[in-house]
Design a protein around this nucleic acid. Structure first.
Lengths: 138, 138
DNA sequence: TCTTTAACGCAACTCGGTTGCAAATATAAA
DNA sequence: TTTATATTTGCAACCGAGTTGCGTTAAAGA
């Protein structure tokens, strides 16, 4: 039983050929993926509905998390911390490249603590950075 | 010539009945608006294409700016600072209410300066807060 | 008033994502 | 190993936010 099999099992998911490939994609990616990118990478054999449902399942069980996207697409990246179906725990920043439009998780940058303002009860904070990623700086 | 007329003129836009109403909506709103919300507030006489194009024009000329939205809708709020067709200048935080799903501009909270990480060139930063807005705290 | 150009309205379209349902398959129990 | 159950998959059809083309209307400046 490979690592991928084990991870899927631990999260209550079945180890189908497609879901193992999908999970592998996320582990190999240094940034993040959209449903369309998944489809392009894997070839077109898998129906888009299957991709969307697998992404939903992965997110619900804490394998991947949503990251911001430049074009309002739904974009996911692997979870590194102790996420589960109960709760996602992320306090890192995200970086969107103005050139390649990719979104990267920046685990080095933690979200600073923000003091509340005039009656707003802050429960969560997200920090999104924009600029040029290492690959796009000539 | 009312204030609204003057503002539209200063931004190179024509003072039609609809655009005056639209601009007035944004000045009166303490949070932000989507195209659908605009349509609902104004009644159904105005075509959705007209609303979308007016919102685009308002954004391009620096009257309104895009704010994050819980459901990936395109959502706008009035610009308070010195925005123009050349450049939008915003360094305030945005607050999304988990209950009413509205997005508020929090002008009191400025974006902290973020130090770059391992090869990423940071040109802009966005801070989005989530929680309960004043109206939704019972 | 005339001319130019921005704004409007309609219809049709695009595209990311969803829903219903039946068929296939992984998993656990017998 | 076989059987039963629940998950996953694929197809088709659908949904809804936003866009495009184009002809018409109406501001603004001359």
């Amino acid at each position: 039983m490979t690592d991928l099999d084990l991870v899927l099992k631990e999260h209550g998911l079945r180890k189908t050929t497609f879901r193992k490939e999908l999970l592998s994609l996320f582990y190999d990616s240094n940034s993040s993926l959209t449903a369309e990118e998944v489809k392009n990478i894997l070839g077109h054999t898998t129906d888009k509905v299957t991709i969307y449902r697998a992404l939903d399942a992965f997110e619900k069980t804490g394998l991947i998390h949503r990251v911001p996207d430049k074009s309002n697409l739904t974009r996911y990246a692997i979870c590194h911390s102790e996420c589960s179906s109960i709760k996602h725990v992320h306090n890192h920043a995200h970086f969107i490249c103005n050139s390649c439009n990719e979104t990267f998780c920046i685990n080095d940058i933690k979200i600073p603590h923000i003091e509340g303002a005039k009656g707003f009860l802050i429960k969560n904070a997200k920090l999104t950075l924009e600029g040029d990623c290492p690959q796009c700086q000539s």
